Simulated assay, not measured.
Amino acid sequence: MKKIGIIALALFMQHISAQNNRFVYQVTMKPDAENKSDIKTENTYLDISAEKSLFYSENRYKRDSILQKAFQGGGGRASVSREQMEGMRSNINYSVEKDMASQKTYFKDRIGRDVYVYEEDRPLNWSMSSETTKIGDYKVQKATTDFAGRKWTAWFTTDLPYQDGPYKFKGLPGLIVKVEDDKGDYSFDLMKNYKIAEIVTLNQFGNILKVKRAEYVKQQEKYKKDPMSFMQGGGGGFPAPPRANGGRGGNQNPAEMRKRVEERAKEEAKKNSNPIELP
């Protein structure tokens, strides 16, 4: 009986482990509207368990992990070199979490010192096609949708026991292997997958503010015009020095810091003038 119990436990643990999978997508994007030849690529993870899925950037996870360790080991002030930070720059600083039970989708993104969270309020209405093909090892079927100002074509497979996809994409009877917009500005391509012990917990420096999507968009626009207003007051723990000045400390002239932050915000806004979601 004891042996049977051990075998049953082993099978149970194997079943639980099998429920946690990581799907690695390569994202190809043209974030600069004025320079479409500047093509960015980076890897992202879609971690799926029985309860939820989490989509995020590989670079963002590595960067936040280094910041967290440096911040904890520095007595409350992180010391991270500019080279370290530059090596892990990402165009995907947000994360998307989907709750399997409620079928709700939550988007998280940092604006200044705080993390804004909203529940996606727009449905994904897919038009199914009978067209099929093969991508890698998977037989896939075509579906299309209009979402957030773009027309998307997705290819999904029923070869895998998941009904999910990268970013906010979901609602098809299978896992999305590839999805791209009709302008060729954004593409998500499944590269590989493997089992993981558990879904990671992303570090969230600063306050977490739950808002409506419209409020997030409003704050995002406000940040582009006046980034310094988001760097003062609140925050509570976001290690601003490494991001602002490459870890040279917080003793620089306030006017210099304001100018540096404003210039960087304008530069980032220009480089991301073709976002994945359009008005």
Results as ranks from 00 to 15, higher is better:
residue 217 V to A: 12
residue 277 E to H: 06
residue 212 K to S: 09
residue 144 T to F: 00
residue 39 I to M: 00
residue 50 A to N: 06
residue 126 W to S: 11
residue 255 A to N: 01
residue 264 R to C: 04
residue 1 M to E: 09
residue 78 A to D: 07
residue 208 I to D: 01
residue 106 Y to C: 09
residue 85 M to K: 01
residue 138 Y to F: 15
residue 114 D to P: 10
residue 128 M to N: 10
residue 233 G to R: 02
residue 266 K to H: 12
residue 179 V to N: 01
residue 72 Q to I: 07
residue 140 V to E: 03
residue 153 T to I: 06
residue 6 I to K: 00
residue 50 A to D: 10
residue 260 R to K: 11
residue 45 Y to D: 06
residue 235 G to S: 08
residue 243 R to W: 14
residue 194 Y to V: 03
residue 24 V to S: 10
residue 213 R to C: 02
residue 238 F to M: 14
residue 237 G to R: 10
residue 1 M to S: 13
residue 246 G to C: 07
residue 230 F to R: 06
residue 260 R to D: 01
residue 151 K to M: 03
residue 136 G to Y: 07
residue 272 N to I: 06
residue 97 E to I: 11
residue 163 Q to A: 10
residue 207 N to R: 14
residue 185 D to Y: 07
residue 265 A to M: 09
residue 149 G to Y: 01
residue 161 P to G: 08
residue 136 G to F: 09
residue 30 K to I: 02
residue 15 H to D: 09
residue 47 D to A: 12
residue 254 P to G: 04
residue 105 T to L: 05
residue 151 K to W: 00
residue 261 V to C: 02
residue 183 K to H: 08
residue 191 M to K: 15
residue 272 N to Y: 03
residue 10 A to K: 00
residue 123 P to T: 00
residue 235 G to D: 04
residue 232 Q to W: 00
residue 84 Q to C: 08
residue 95 S to D: 10
residue 212 K to Q: 12
residue 68 Q to D: 15
residue 57 S to P: 03
residue 150 R to E: 01
residue 137 D to Y: 07
residue 190 L to N: 02
residue 257 M to F: 08
residue 171 G to R: 04
residue 245 N to G: 11
residue 7 I to C: 05
